[in-house]
Protein backbone atom coordinates (compact mmCIF):
# COMPACT_ATOMS: atom_id res chain seq x y z
CA UNK A 1 0.00 0.00 0.00
CA UNK A 2 1.47 3.29 -1.10
CA UNK A 3 -0.09 6.69 -0.82
CA UNK A 4 -0.06 7.17 -4.60
CA UNK A 5 -2.26 4.11 -5.02
CA UNK A 6 -5.15 4.99 -2.71
CA UNK A 7 -7.69 2.16 -2.78
CA UNK A 8 -11.04 1.96 -0.96
CA UNK A 9 -9.50 -0.88 1.07
CA UNK A 10 -6.79 1.44 2.30
CA UNK A 11 -9.44 4.02 3.21
CA UNK A 12 -11.45 1.40 5.13
CA UNK A 13 -8.29 0.17 6.83
CA UNK A 14 -7.57 3.74 7.89
CA UNK A 15 -11.03 4.10 9.40
CA UNK A 16 -10.86 0.81 11.28
CA UNK A 17 -7.34 1.49 12.48
CA UNK A 18 -8.52 4.87 13.73
CA UNK A 19 -11.47 3.24 15.55
CA UNK A 20 -9.17 0.62 17.11
CA UNK A 21 -6.49 3.06 18.23
CA UNK A 22 -8.98 5.75 19.26
CA UNK A 23 -10.86 3.21 21.35
CA UNK A 24 -7.63 2.05 22.94
CA UNK A 25 -6.69 5.64 23.68
CA UNK A 26 -10.10 6.13 25.30
CA UNK A 27 -9.54 3.05 27.48
CA UNK A 28 -6.29 4.32 28.95
CA UNK A 29 -7.27 7.96 29.37
CA UNK A 30 -10.72 7.58 30.94
CA UNK A 31 -10.89 7.83 34.70
CA UNK A 32 -14.30 6.20 34.71
CA UNK A 33 -13.94 2.44 34.40
CA UNK A 34 -17.36 1.79 32.84
CA UNK A 35 -16.58 4.30 30.14
CA UNK A 36 -13.21 2.64 29.73
CA UNK A 37 -14.96 -0.69 29.17
CA UNK A 38 -17.22 0.89 26.54
CA UNK A 39 -14.20 2.37 24.76
CA UNK A 40 -12.61 -1.08 24.85
CA UNK A 41 -15.64 -2.46 23.01
CA UNK A 42 -15.28 0.23 20.35
CA UNK A 43 -11.65 -0.74 19.97
CA UNK A 44 -12.56 -4.42 19.63
CA UNK A 45 -15.18 -3.47 17.05
CA UNK A 46 -12.43 -1.86 15.00
CA UNK A 47 -10.45 -5.10 15.20
CA UNK A 48 -13.52 -6.96 13.88
CA UNK A 49 -13.57 -4.52 10.94
CA UNK A 50 -9.92 -5.30 10.20
CA UNK A 51 -10.77 -9.02 10.21
CA UNK A 52 -13.41 -8.30 7.55
CA UNK A 53 -10.78 -6.52 5.46
CA UNK A 54 -8.54 -9.57 5.82
CA UNK A 55 -11.34 -11.70 4.25
CA UNK A 56 -11.97 -13.47 7.54
CA UNK A 57 -15.69 -12.77 8.14
CA UNK A 58 -16.00 -15.74 10.48
CA UNK A 59 -13.36 -14.33 12.81
CA UNK A 60 -15.02 -10.91 12.60
CA UNK A 61 -18.39 -12.31 13.67
CA UNK A 62 -16.78 -14.33 16.46
CA UNK A 63 -14.86 -11.23 17.56
CA UNK A 64 -18.12 -9.30 17.95
CA UNK A 65 -20.01 -12.21 19.49
CA UNK A 66 -17.37 -13.22 22.02
CA UNK A 67 -15.48 -10.03 22.78
CA UNK A 68 -18.24 -7.44 22.58
CA UNK A 69 -21.33 -9.57 23.22
CA UNK A 70 -19.92 -11.62 26.08
CA UNK A 71 -16.59 -10.48 27.51
CA UNK A 72 -17.26 -6.75 27.12
CA UNK A 73 -20.57 -7.03 28.91
CA UNK A 74 -18.97 -9.18 31.60
CA UNK A 75 -16.27 -6.55 32.19
CA UNK A 76 -18.89 -3.79 32.41
CA UNK A 77 -20.78 -5.77 34.98
CA UNK A 78 -17.76 -6.68 37.03
CA UNK A 79 -16.92 -2.98 37.18
CA UNK A 80 -20.47 -1.96 38.05
CA UNK A 81 -20.81 -4.56 40.78
CA UNK A 82 -17.61 -3.54 42.57
CA UNK A 83 -18.42 -0.18 44.05
CA UNK A 84 -14.85 0.74 44.95
CA UNK A 85 -13.86 0.52 41.29
CA UNK A 86 -16.51 2.93 40.01
CA UNK A 87 -15.24 5.72 42.26
CA UNK A 88 -11.59 5.69 41.25
CA UNK A 89 -10.35 9.24 40.76
CA UNK A 90 -6.65 8.99 40.03
CA UNK A 91 -5.62 8.21 36.48
CA UNK A 92 -2.45 6.22 37.21
CA UNK A 93 -1.59 3.67 39.84
CA UNK A 94 1.89 2.81 41.12
CA UNK A 95 2.68 0.39 38.32
CA UNK A 96 2.29 2.79 35.40
CA UNK A 97 5.98 2.54 34.44
CA UNK A 98 5.77 -1.27 34.27
CA UNK A 99 2.78 -1.05 31.93
CA UNK A 100 4.58 1.51 29.80
CA UNK A 101 7.67 -0.70 29.47
CA UNK A 102 5.60 -3.76 28.51
CA UNK A 103 3.53 -1.93 25.91
CA UNK A 104 6.52 -0.18 24.33
CA UNK A 105 8.41 -3.46 24.20
CA UNK A 106 5.46 -5.24 22.60
CA UNK A 107 5.06 -2.44 20.06
CA UNK A 108 8.76 -2.57 19.20
CA UNK A 109 8.60 -6.34 18.86
CA UNK A 110 5.62 -6.23 16.50
CA UNK A 111 7.17 -3.45 14.44
CA UNK A 112 10.42 -5.39 14.17
CA UNK A 113 8.56 -8.51 13.13
CA UNK A 114 6.66 -6.70 10.38
CA UNK A 115 9.22 -4.21 9.04
CA UNK A 116 12.48 -6.11 9.58
CA UNK A 117 11.70 -9.70 8.67
CA UNK A 118 13.61 -11.17 11.57
CA UNK A 119 11.53 -14.36 11.68
CA UNK A 120 11.08 -14.85 7.95
CA UNK A 121 9.16 -12.85 5.37
CA UNK A 122 5.55 -11.87 5.86
CA UNK A 123 3.72 -13.92 3.26
CA UNK A 124 0.11 -13.99 2.23
CA UNK A 125 -1.56 -17.16 3.55
CA UNK A 126 -2.51 -19.81 1.06
CA UNK A 127 -6.14 -19.13 0.26
CA UNK A 128 -6.72 -22.58 -1.19
CA UNK A 129 -6.28 -24.20 2.20
CA UNK A 130 -9.29 -22.45 3.68
CA UNK A 131 -11.49 -21.02 0.97
CA UNK A 132 -14.66 -20.58 3.02
CA UNK A 133 -16.08 -21.17 6.47
CA UNK A 134 -16.95 -24.81 5.73
CA UNK A 135 -13.26 -25.54 5.06
CA UNK A 136 -12.42 -23.83 8.32
CA UNK A 137 -14.81 -26.09 10.20
CA UNK A 138 -13.51 -29.21 8.47
CA UNK A 139 -9.91 -28.21 9.23
CA UNK A 140 -10.80 -27.75 12.89
CA UNK A 141 -12.16 -31.26 13.36
CA UNK A 142 -9.85 -33.28 11.11
CA UNK A 143 -6.71 -34.97 12.40
CA UNK A 144 -4.73 -34.70 9.18
CA UNK A 145 -4.27 -31.98 6.64
CA UNK A 146 -3.28 -32.16 2.98
CA UNK A 147 -0.56 -29.63 2.37
CA UNK A 148 -1.09 -27.52 -0.74
CA UNK A 149 2.61 -27.17 -1.47
CA UNK A 150 3.74 -30.78 -1.83
CA UNK A 151 0.31 -32.45 -1.72
CA UNK A 152 1.30 -34.69 1.16
CA UNK A 153 -0.83 -35.74 4.07
CA UNK A 154 0.66 -34.68 7.35
CA UNK A 155 -0.61 -35.03 10.88
CA UNK A 156 -1.05 -31.31 11.31
CA UNK A 157 -4.80 -31.13 11.73
CA UNK A 158 -6.33 -28.96 14.40
CA UNK A 159 -8.44 -31.55 16.17
CA UNK A 160 -6.00 -31.91 19.08
CA UNK A 161 -5.68 -28.16 19.84
CA UNK A 162 -9.45 -27.91 19.37
CA UNK A 163 -10.12 -30.63 21.93
CA UNK A 164 -7.53 -29.18 24.32
CA UNK A 165 -9.30 -25.83 24.12
CA UNK A 166 -12.66 -27.44 24.84
CA UNK A 167 -11.14 -29.32 27.80
CA UNK A 168 -9.81 -26.02 29.12
CA UNK A 169 -13.24 -24.43 28.81
CA UNK A 170 -14.89 -27.37 30.57
CA UNK A 171 -12.34 -27.14 33.39
CA UNK A 172 -13.01 -23.40 33.72
CA UNK A 173 -16.74 -24.06 33.81
CA UNK A 174 -16.40 -26.71 36.52
CA UNK A 175 -14.17 -24.32 38.46
CA UNK A 176 -16.80 -21.60 38.24
CA UNK A 177 -19.47 -23.97 39.50
CA UNK A 178 -17.28 -25.10 42.39
CA UNK A 179 -16.56 -21.49 43.42
CA UNK A 180 -20.18 -20.40 43.11
CA UNK A 181 -21.54 -23.42 44.95
CA UNK A 182 -22.83 -22.97 48.46
CA UNK A 183 -21.10 -25.04 51.10
CA UNK A 184 -23.33 -27.79 52.35
Amino acid sequence: MTFGNFTPEAFAFGIFALITLGGAFGVITNKNLVRGALWLMISLFGVAGIFVLLSAPFLAAVQILVYIGAIGILITFAVMLTRSMTNITQRFNQQWWLGAIVSVALFALLMAAVIVPVWGDVTEPNRNDVADTTDLGVALVSAERVSELDNETSLEGYVLPFEVASLLLTAAMIGAIVIAREDD
Binding site: M41, P57, F58, A61, I64, L65, I68, G69
Partner: peptide
Amino acid sequence: IGALYFVAVASIGTL
Protein backbone atom coordinates in the same frame (compact mmCIF):
# COMPACT_ATOMS: atom_id res chain seq x y z
CA ILE B 1 -21.76 -16.65 7.85
CA GLY B 2 -25.30 -15.16 7.86
CA ALA B 3 -26.60 -17.10 10.88
CA LEU B 4 -23.52 -16.33 12.97
CA TYR B 5 -23.73 -12.69 11.89
CA PHE B 6 -27.28 -12.58 13.22
CA VAL B 7 -26.27 -13.96 16.61
CA ALA B 8 -23.29 -11.61 16.82
CA VAL B 9 -25.25 -8.50 15.89
CA ALA B 10 -28.18 -9.36 18.15
CA SER B 11 -25.82 -9.57 21.13
CA ILE B 12 -25.09 -5.85 20.75
CA GLY B 13 -28.67 -5.16 21.92
CA THR B 14 -27.72 -6.27 25.44
CA LEU B 15 -24.95 -3.70 25.41
